[in-house]
Amino acid sequence: MTEQTTDLYINASGSSAITLKTTSHPSFGTGSQLDKLMIYPIVPIMFFSNLGLITNSLNVAVFIKMGFKETTNISMLSLAVSDFLSCLLGLWTYLCLIPEFRNIPNLPFEPTEIASETGTALRPYVTRTGAFITAFITLERCLCVVLPMKVKRIITIPVTCVTMIVIYVITLLPYSVHPVFTTIGWKYYPHLNKTLIGAVPTNNKVAPIFLIIIRYLVGFIFLLLAIIIILVCTLFLVITLAKSLRWRNSMRKQTQLNASSGQTSSQKPSESRKENRLIKMVVVIATLFIVSHLPGTILIFVLPVAEDYAEKNVNDPFTILQISFIFAFELVNNSVNFFVYYLIGTKFRLAFRQMVGLKEKNST
């Protein structure tokens, strides 16, 4: 007979997570309510995780092919790496929740505990990396609009490279203190009568202090700062696009008048269209990020309430489903940027088609 309990908790970085603790050795293909329900979020999570691994691999390859003469390519490449890692961690985390995987004979580790330590605990830090890179990309586009003649002297290729490295270091560094809470080591499981690799609590007295610091630093401050930057810059870029559209309409009318009178225009509409396409692409990426992370962000902002809710609903499978679908919603953002780049970015589409041996149709 199988007895299975489920703990729902908010981890150190402020992101929701799920831990399944099996109190007796489960039979293969257990028919518990949780195992039956988990198939619903696991299917989209697995789909978008695998899709994200493919699309972000393509993103990395295409941006490397495009070269690094433009700062935007460096930022987009860094974002693709972050999204790839996020999808990889998501795939690993929920793979370990699949009953068939958990019940594989002779596994040298306890799947759900290892997934919690190496996947669930790490992924929020990687997500914050993507958030700050997205914020930097939107901020750069805003500077291109506000300071078009100076931005290339302010945001240079070395500055962009250093910024990407700093973002990765600042957002991932807090994870280095995770061993203060829990370490990975050999652990005896009485119900299995086995010693497996699992999560070993440290019982460190300073652990609660680190927990509070990291929770508010990564969970609140990092994410809140990134979202504010993305929101403000996206609104500014949307307004800029609207003004640009009105300007292009007026210039089109002016060009028609000049053509009828035999005059020529000194404007370069192709450059304007190129800049507008880039702004549009950034706006779409930023909007996708905000929308996909909105449910999880709300959960983090009501963290004390969420903790109380988790304690009261610790064995409620439907609570776990809610958290899982929030997780799946975030993975959508990590996996669809390739399609945004391809549909809007002319250079990206050309580089991709050349890479796979396709010819690009003539376009202006």
Rank of each mutant, 00 (worst) to 15 (best):
N103Y: 04
V166T: 12
R277I: 03
K205T: 13
L51K: 03
L278R: 14
V305N: 11
I10H: 06
C96H: 09
I154C: 08
T72C: 02
F101Q: 07
T297R: 07
N73Q: 04
L172S: 02
R123C: 10
E100D: 13
T2W: 04
F222W: 02
C161F: 15
S86N: 12
I165V: 15
P148A: 07
I54V: 15
S13L: 11
R128Q: 14
C87D: 03
S57W: 08
I221E: 03
R277G: 14
C142L: 04
V177H: 09
K253N: 12
V332K: 03
L77R: 06
N334K: 13
T240A: 13
R277Y: 08
L237P: 03
G296T: 07
R277V: 05
Q322V: 15
E3I: 00
I323D: 01
E330F: 11
R349S: 03
I74P: 10
I344R: 07
S324H: 02
L97T: 03
G119P: 03
L122C: 07
N103S: 14
L211K: 15
T182L: 07
D7S: 12
P304W: 07
A242I: 14
L192Q: 12
I230E: 08
L358G: 05
A61M: 12
F28D: 09
C142N: 06
T138S: 15
R141N: 13
A131C: 07
V340T: 10
P111V: 07
A259T: 00
R248Y: 04
R273K: 10
I155H: 04
P124L: 02
P148E: 00
H191V: 04
T120W: 15
L231R: 05
S270Q: 15
I114V: 14
I227A: 11
L122R: 00
L37Q: 02
I344A: 00
I298Q: 02
N73D: 10
H293E: 06
L172W: 01
V291C: 08
S15Q: 14
T129V: 13
M281Q: 13
Y168Q: 07
N276E: 15
S32M: 05
I39E: 08
L53D: 04
S265R: 07
N203I: 03
S335T: 01
L225P: 09
Y342T: 05
L299H: 09
P158R: 00
D35T: 10
L88N: 05
A226P: 05
A207P: 05
I212N: 12
V146W: 12
V145S: 00
K243G: 10
E100V: 05
L37A: 11
M281Y: 00
A61P: 01
A310Y: 14
K65P: 12
A131I: 00
L95A: 13
I227R: 12
R353E: 14
V81H: 01
P111G: 01
T234E: 01
E275T: 08
Q256T: 06
M76C: 13
G31V: 11
L173E: 11
L225V: 15
T160H: 03
P108A: 01
A328Y: 00
K152M: 01
R349H: 00
P295V: 07
K194S: 04
I165K: 05
V302K: 06
F301H: 10
T118E: 03
F327T: 10
S260F: 11
Y40A: 14
S15K: 13
E307N: 09
